[in-house]
Design a protein around this nucleic acid. Sequence first.
DNA 1: CTGGTGACTTATC
DNA 2: AGATAAGCCACCA
Length: 118
Amino acid sequence: MRSPFTAQVIELIRAIPEGKVATYGGIAAMAGSPRGARQVVRILHTCSRTENLPWQRVVNREGKIALKPFQGYEEQQAMLEAEGIEFGLSSTIDLQHFLWQPSSEEIASILNMAERQT
DNA sequence: CTGGTGACTTATC
DNA sequence: AGATAAGCCACCA
C-alpha cells in the first residue's frame, strides 16, 4: 500500500512520453506537492527497478542529468539520446523543446488513474 | 516522537 | 559560473 502522493508520482513518471523529459520539481508539483522534489528522488530510488519506470526521463531543473558519473550518468544519457533527446554543449537538455508539459486535463486523468490503483 | 536521508530547488555571495 | 547554505517533505530506523 502506497500513499496517494507516491502512487501519483509513479503514474506521472510512467506517463512521460518517449522523447520528452520532466523535472523532479515538476513531477512533484503535478502530484500536488510543489516542494516535493526530494520525494520524487526517493521514489525513483525505491521503485525505478520494480515499477518499470522510465527513470531516465527525469532530470533536474537545469535540464541536466542529476546522477553522478559513477551512478549511471552515461547510461541515462545514452537512453535519452536513443529516444531522440539532444544534449547541448554542456550536456544540457533544451527544456524549451524537450520538457513534457501535459495539459491540466492530462494531469487530472493520470492522477485519476493513480487513485484507481489503490 | 526524533533525527537522518536524498538522482532537488532556491537564494545568496 | 561555481560554492554554500537553507528549505523542503515523505519515509525509515
